[in-house]
């Protein structure tokens, strides 16, 4: 996305534009080596999820009752579960569900919440009041409770989980998008846009959005980790994707019944959740530093 020169020129406060952002990113990532670790881990897990069919040693839902609850071995690297399914393969396929739900729900939340926030900030007045008070009400529910509520109403399925988690982050994105919009709205170049007769929609999408996107994206990366944890939590309490589809939360839950017999059933998917959340947090920290003006120069 490249912004017209008219927009970037008057903007002296913070860097926008892709090249500047990438340069900042590179510099901060180099300053904070842990960010690279986060990036590598995250990309690695994404690749593992994408290439799960190639990497998996077994069909993740194929049962072999005679080989149930086997500890890790050469043929089953991370052991087998209570149905004789390969835990390693299930974790790989489970990564797909976790990532799809995590990323899709955040993307949906970002689009809806970001749009509402920009609209509220740009328009102000009663539109702002109406949108933000509703967001306040939604924010007053703890995230997991809100997710539970929505899943319980809609029923447990992958799409509904995405909607439920998106629902919990919409008010957060709306808040994050609104504040910088108010600041940007007062700038001269926006005034110029109005004078040129640009439509509100065009001003919001083309001239305001690029200036607030950086901040939103940083939080998106951090909240993706939260979304993945919520998905695992909902699966753990039985409101996740239905069996036999492997999900990390679901695997931890199933393994929980055998925790004293076969601890590996819960430990490995638990580690997978930990790694993914850890990588996203490191990544998010790096991104945050990259756009933080205080850390610049």
């Amino acid at each position: 996305m490249t912004a017209p020169t008219l927009d970037t020129a008057p903007d002296t406060g913070r860097g926008t534009g892709a090249p500047r952002f990438l340069a900042d990113l590179l510099r901060v990532f180099n300053a904070n080596k842990l960010s690279w670790l986060g990036l590598v881990l995250f990309v690695g897990l994404c690749l593992a999820a994408v290439f799960a069919p190639l990497l998996a040693t077994h069909d993740p839902i194929d049962q072999s009752i005679l080989y149930r609850l086997r500890p890790p071995s050469d043929s089953h690297w991370l052991g087998t579960d209570s149905y004789g399914r390969d835990v390693f393969s299930r974790i790989l396929y489970g990564a797909r569900i976790s990532l799809i739900i995590g990323l899709a729900s955040i993307a949906l939340g970002l689009v809806v919440g970001g749009a509402l926030g920009i609209l509220a900030g740009y328009r102000g007045g009663w539109v702002d009041q109406a949108i933000m008070r509703v967001m306040d009400v939604l924010l007053s529910f703890p995230t997991l409770i809100m997710g539970l509520l929505v899943v319980a109403m809609l029923g447990a399925s992958m799409l509904n989980l995405i909607i439920a988690i998106a629902f919990t982050v919409v008010p957060k994105f709306a808040r994050i998008a609104r504040a910088p919009t108010i600041a940007v709205r007062e700038r001269d170049y926006i005034e110029a846009c109005r004078a040129l007769g640009y439509s509100d929609l065009r001003i919001m999408v083309v001239h305001i959005l690029p200036n607030v996107l950086g901040e939103i994206l940083v939080l998106a990366s951090l909240w993706t980790a939260t979304a993945i944890r919520i998905e695992a939590s909902l699966s753990f309490i039985g409101l996740g994707v239905a069996p036999p589809t492997p999900t990390w939360g679901g695997m931890i839950r199933e393994g929980f019944e055998y925790i004293l017999d076969a601890p590996w059933l819960s430990i490995y998917p638990g580690l997978a959740v930990l790694l993914l959340v850890f990588s996203l947090n490191l990544l998010g920290d790096g991104l945050r530093d990259a756009i933080d003006p205080k850390l610049r120069e």
Binding site: I61, D62, Q63, I65, S82, Y83, G155, A156, G238, A242, P243, P244, E257
Partner: peptide
């Protein structure tokens, strides 16, 4: 049901039916 005494064997049934091409979608409820 979520209860393992029925859910667990149901998952075995689900897999056995899958082997003949019947895809059972489970709706796991309280």
């Amino acid at each position: 049901t979520q209860r393992t005494s029925l859910l667990d064997p149901m998952q075995v049934v689900q897999e056995q039916l899958r082997r003949v091409g019947i895809a059972v979608e489970l709706d796991v409820v309280e």
